[in-house]
Structure formats: C-alpha cells, structure tokens
Design a protein around this nucleic acid. Structure first.
Length: 425
RNA sequence: GGAGAGGUGGCCGAGUGGUCGAAGGCACCAGAUUGCUAAUCUGGCGUACUGGGCAACCGGUACCGAGGGUUCGAAUCCCUCCCUCUCCGCCA
C-alpha cells in the first residue's frame, strides 16, 4: 500500500512513477476525489459527534422532565450522525479498495523499461559446460533414473503433479537441508517452520490479495489460504506489531511447500517439474530499517547467489526494469540458472525490496527510540532457492553420457556419501 | 463438537449506562535530589484520522477482541462471531 499523504501531496510524482511500472495513473485522480469526499465527511461527522457529546453531558445533569423535552431533538442529531457514519464507512471501504489495487513505486535507481526485454544482466559466473553428447532435458534424465514418476503423480493428484522416489526424494531433501544449513549457519538467518495455511488478513498483508486471488488455493469452509510462498507467513510474522530498533534487522528463513493454481500459466511449461501446483522452496525474508533496505537487497541477492556458486552451476543475475517489477517490489533481481537440456535460463530466485509497501498493509512498524513515533519497516524477500528449478539445473548440468548424474560435492554429505545416481536395474 | 470462565493501554489490574482514553500498580522516558550498587520526589508516557501552529506543540474525533443492536448517551445492557483457559467427548 502506498502512503495516502504522498498521493495527496505529490499526485503528479505518483502518477509518473506508476506509469513507469505500467499501472494506470488515472486511478490516482479517482482516488483523490474519493479521498477528498471522505475527509470532508469525516470532518463534518467529527463536529457533529463533538456536539452530541457536549449535549449528552448536559442532559446528564438535567432532571428527567427536562431531559424528556430535548430527547426528540437529540434523537434527530443521533440519526444524522448514524447516517453519516454509514456513508463514511462506505467511502472508507472504497478508498481502501482503491489503495489496495495500487502497486508499489520503483526505487529511483531501477532502470526504466516496459517489460522483460529491458531487463539487464548485471552479473554472471561459470561458463556453460561443453558436452560431448547431446544433453537431455531433465524429464528424460529423471525418468531413466527412475527418480521422478510423472504418470503416478498425475494419477494421485492430476496434471502438474509428480512423485519423487528413491534417490530423487533423497536429493530433494538433501538440497533443502543443505540450503537451510547455509542460511542458518553462515548467513545469519533464523529458521522458521510456519503454518502452510494462513488467514486472509495475512495474504492481504503480503500483497497477494486482492489482486492475485485466482492464483491461490483456499479452503471454502474456513478462512484458510494455502501459502503460495513462505514469504507470506514470514513477512507477516510481526504483522500488527511495533518492534524495537534493536530487534532489526530480522533475517528469517523457512523451507516450505508452496501451492499455486498456475491458472495464468495454463499450457505453459507443462513438461517436467518447472511449474507444478505444489513445489518446495527455501525462502528468505528480511525485516529492516528503511535506510538499510537498498543495501540489504544486495546482500539478499548474494545470499541466493551463494547457493548457485557452491553448486557450481552457471548462473546470472538479472535486474528487473520498472515494467517487470511486479506488484509489491520497488526493486528486484532474478537469479537464473542455465539448463543445458531445456536450453533456457531458469528463474531459481527472485529477490525483492518491497520497501514499506507490505509493512503498511500488514502494519509492521518499529520505534527508533523509546518514545519515538512508530515508523514502517521495510521488508525484503527472496528465494534461496526454489527447489524444482534448482533440481532441473542440477540434473541437466551434472548429467553424464551414460544417463547417470553426478552428485555435486557439497551435497554428498547430505546423500550419505553417494557420488553418482545411476539408473535402477 | 458439548459445558463453564474470560478477552480493558507494553504488562498487571480496576471499572456494570453519563466529563472514562479509561483509577491504581509495574515497566519505560525526562528532570530534581541524596556524596556508594541503589532509593526518593516531580512530570511525562497508546494508536489512527483530522483542524490549527504549518517544528519541539494545542484542539477535535474514533478505538476497552470483531461486527451489529438498544439508548439522548455504552468499556459498561442485548445479539452474532472470533480467540484464550479449564473440564468432557472425539480423533491423527
């Protein structure tokens, strides 16, 4: 959510920034009109209520007969107020709804652009491996090894589901545990095991509601939403709270399954494990003081990249232009791994500085000093990393001519010393 | 799922229709004071919106789990819901 005061004071600036991210600047005019009506009504109501309180207190001192004589007129005043309150509530809801639809504004240093084609590769490492055979796509590798069963996944749940079996399941678990260990032991994150379902206030706080309602699974009986990412529970961990400056920065990490309907991507990436309805992810979230967030984004990217480096898989970091920031991000970097089988760069992490956008929605604040005014924190999030795509890159980069897959060195201790996954007899 | 108890400011805790945003205590902050860690005194000490000073301030309104209702007036009465605790039932 944006700051309504900023919109009131610098509407032209806000419009200009919204245009950069591809939003409709006209929404601001409508919003200002609503907001003006809301404020005028609120002011009139405040005066009426003050008047009622004054008169009510007067009545308290009068005799029953005197009271009776003024009751009708008091009632009229009360009715006027009640009607105004209903109008105000409706207006407030309209303003709120309009505010919730506005995306975040970009940081000043983000390159202006209209879409993917304007993104910039800012760094990369490792040359793509030269194969002396035709590298296979991961679904072929996995099927030959018998570590991913696509047919039975469909049988159990439906399309976009798969089953990992034997060394595949173990490799998934090894990746999760290893990534968490790096986050916790080396990068200063606190491990969290959050609920996988949250209530609607939390999904609103993270910015997934109302706009991305259709992309999430939910329980129809109760107010439960399956998390599309651990960003939701982690960012909301301190929702509604006022933190002390000494508590910041807060670094959180969690491994969780994530659930997505993928309705908007119907028909895309249907092969393999690139885009499932359920997938594993190790997530990182930072809660920081506003002046730190730009710097913290850089280190968040470093934290994600470190996983790629240790796996020794070719990767690149892409800086998103204003047109590709998405709804909540004010600045964003994607980390992509090269998949030689699929012949594409796979987004394994997306690191965002959400500035105070989520903090406003979720009311996460902090005090610089004991009796200082509360200020909104800045929140950041990034994958560290997404499992399926990391696994794709791993299988495709570490495949051998005979169909076996070498296990990266860093993972061997987590695989009971296994060095190669070979086809099952 | 059933029965009972309860949800008040950072915490504890009063308040059962009328100057209650809410006593008191603790904690915290500022100052004063006592020549030791510490004690004592005074003052301050919620959030949001809003009007004015357009700054350190002064005023208005809202908020006592949430939402409705009764009333001239509700933290206080009524209804619904949510949550916590205790007991019972059920269950992985």
């Amino acid at each position: 959510m944006l700051d309504i005061k900023l919109i009131r004071e610098k509407p032209d600036f806000v419009k200009q920034e919204l245009a950069k991210v591809g939003a409709q600047p006209e929404a601001i005019d409508h919003l200002l009109e609503l907001d003006g009506r809301r404020r005028r009504l609120q002011h009139r109501l405040d005066e009426l209520r003050a008047e009622r309180t004054r008169q009510s207190r007067e009545l308290a001192r009068l005799s029953e007969q005197e009271r009776e004589s003024r009751r009708a007129q008091m009632r009229e005043l009360s009715d006027t107020i009640a009607q105004g309150e209903r109008e105000l509530a409706a207006l407030e809801q309209e303003v709120e709804a309009a505010m919730l639809e506005l995306p975040n504004l970009p940081r000043p240093y983000v390159p202006v652009g209209s879409g993917e084609q304007d993104n910039r590769v800012v760094r990369s490492e490792f040359e793509p491996r030269k194969f002396d055979f035709e590298p296979r796509p991961h679904w072929e590798i996995a099927q030959r090894l018998g570590i991913i069963d696509f047919e039975r996944g469909v049988k159990l749940a439906g399309t976009r589901f798969y089953v990992m079996i034997g060394a595949g399941a173990k490799l998934e678990r090894a990746l999760i545990t290893w990534m968490l260990d790096v986050k916790i032991k080396e990068q200063g994150y606190v491990e969290v095991w959050p609920p996988l379902m949250v209530n609607s206030a939390m999904v609103l706080g993270s910015g997934h509601l109302p706009k991305f309602r259709d992309t999430m699974y939910r329980d129809v009986e109760d107010d439960f939403w399956f998390i599309p990412t651990a960003e939701v529970p982690l960012t909301n961990l301190y929702a509604g709270e006022i933190l002390e400056a000494s508590q910041l920065p807060i670094y959180l990490t969690a491994y969780t399954p994530c659930f997505r309907r993928e309705k908007m991507s119907a028909g895309r990436d249907v092969r393999g494990i690139k885009r499932g309805h359920q997938f594993d992810k190790v997530e990182m979230v930072k809660v920081v003081a506003p002046e730190e967030s730009d710097r913290e984004l850089e280190s968040l990217v470093d934290n994600a990249v470190e996983i790629c480096r240790r796996l020794r898989i070719p990767y690149r970091v892409v800086q998103m232009c204003t047109g590709d920031l998405g709804f909540t991000a004010a600045a964003k970097y994607d980390v992509e791994m090269w998949a030689p089988g699929c012949q594409e760069w796979l987004e394994v992490s997306s690191c965002s500085n959400c500035t105070d956008f989520q903090a406003r929605r979720a009311q996460i604040r902090f005090r610089r000093e004991k009796n200082a005014k509360p200020e909104f924190v800045h929140t950041l999030n990034g994958s560290g990393l997404g499992l399926p795509r990391t696994l794709i890159a791993l299988l495709e980069n570490y495949q051998n001519a005979d169909g076996s897959v070498t296990i990266p060195e860093v993972l061997r201790p987590y695989m009971d010393g296994m060095t190669v996954i070979r086809p099952r007899a």
